[in-house]
């Protein structure tokens, strides 16, 4: 039957695996967790390099959908790029024009988030049902655990672990994620939790009698000190409400604004705004996203800090 060598090897390996599991579940700091963090840090660096090498394969949202639609990919990227540039410009101008804007539109400043830009370089396998990604900004760029991660569309997730040059981000659709949310128009608050499915979140209202309709937009109500979630960030749109008013289990299904299955460029909020921007960031008719008139003095309201190591650029011209 089993040779002696095989028996010994098997026993050692099984015992080692079980020991790892037990130590890991026990939690806390220890030699194992610091060794794991060090190795994770190294693997993150390797992933950065590999992601750069394989960028032609993966820098687009969906390889399958775009096999014969290269021009569509270019258009999409250009649109995204323009969108991001527009946002930066809006933010720059906003501060200079904040007084008039406040007087005129009764909104607060949009651009007070200090953001570190980053690119998604690795994604966890679908098999373990977790929605976690690696981004190429880490402690060296000022990223710390429990910082908010956003993209052009809205809230993406929060930083779970930060390594030297990379970080692990847990996305809002992950089943372990819970975000405090507020309906943009009625101010009703509740908990937005992930379901593990990429296009749906559950929104549980704190007040079971509160009114919620499909089409309502949700924003974060923010955590203490802006961590893990900065206030006023768009989360998603209510698409379905189950249960009637007054029922204890009244849950709304929310479609996140950010398309989490096809993330590429994200921003880590290293400094939340001093004041809650309320619902000015929600896309749609209520939002103030009209391109600003060219301002005479574009004062920088949004500090886009460059990462210490320049992120690999998604260049396809």
């Amino acid at each position: 039957m089993l040779s002696r060598r095989l028996r010994i090897a098997l026993s050692i390996l099984v015992v080692a695996s079980l020991t790892f599991i037990i130590l890991d579940l026990r939690g806390g700091e220890g030699p194992l967790s610091s060794a794991r963090a060090a190795l994770s840090s190294i693997m993150g660096g390797v992933q950065s390099g590999a992601a750069f090498v394989f960028a032609p394969l993966t820098s687009f949202n969906s390889w399958w959908g775009t096999l014969n639609a290269q021009s569509q990919q270019i258009r999409d990227l250009r649109a995204e790029n323009e969108n991001l540039q527009l946002q930066v410009r809006i933010a720059e101008n906003e501060r200079a024009r904040v007084d008039e804007m406040n007087a005129l539109l009764k909104v607060s400043s949009v651009g007070e988030y200090a953001i570190v830009p980053a690119e998604v370089i690795a994604v966890g396998p679908a098999q373990d049902f977790s929605w976690t990604v690696t981004i190429d900004a880490g402690r060296d760029d000022g990223v710390e655990p429990d910082m908010t991660v956003i993209n052009g569309q809205g809230l993406v997730g929060r930083v779970l672990k930060a390594f030297a040059t990379t970080s692990t981000v847990v996305l809002i659709v992950d089943a372990s994620s819970a975000v405090g949310g507020r309906i943009a128009t009625t101010e009703e608050i509740g908990i937005v939790s992930g379901t593990g499915r990429q296009d749906s979140l559950d929104f549980q209202l704190l007040d079971p009698l509160a009114e919620v309709r499909s089409g309502d937009a949700l924003v974060t109500f923010g955590s203490k000190g802006g961590r893990p979630y900065a206030p006023g960030l768009p989360i998603g749109e209510v698409v379905e409400v189950t249960g009637t008013a007054g029922q204890l289990t009244r849950v709304a299904t929310v479609r996140p604004f950010a398309k989490v299955s096809a993330l590429s460029i994200v921003g880590v909020v290293v400094q939340p705004p001093r004041t809650d921007p309320r619902d000015t960031l929600v896309p749609g008719p209520g939002a103030v996203v009209s391109p600003p008139a060219p301002s005479s003095e574009p004062t920088s309201g949004i500090e886009v800090e460059q990462p210490a190591t320049p992120a690999p650029e998604v260049a396809l011209e």
Partner: peptide, 9 residues
Amino acid sequence: SPPSDTPLG
């Protein structure tokens, strides 16, 4: 490897 959040082992 970084994005993983499953227990080691």
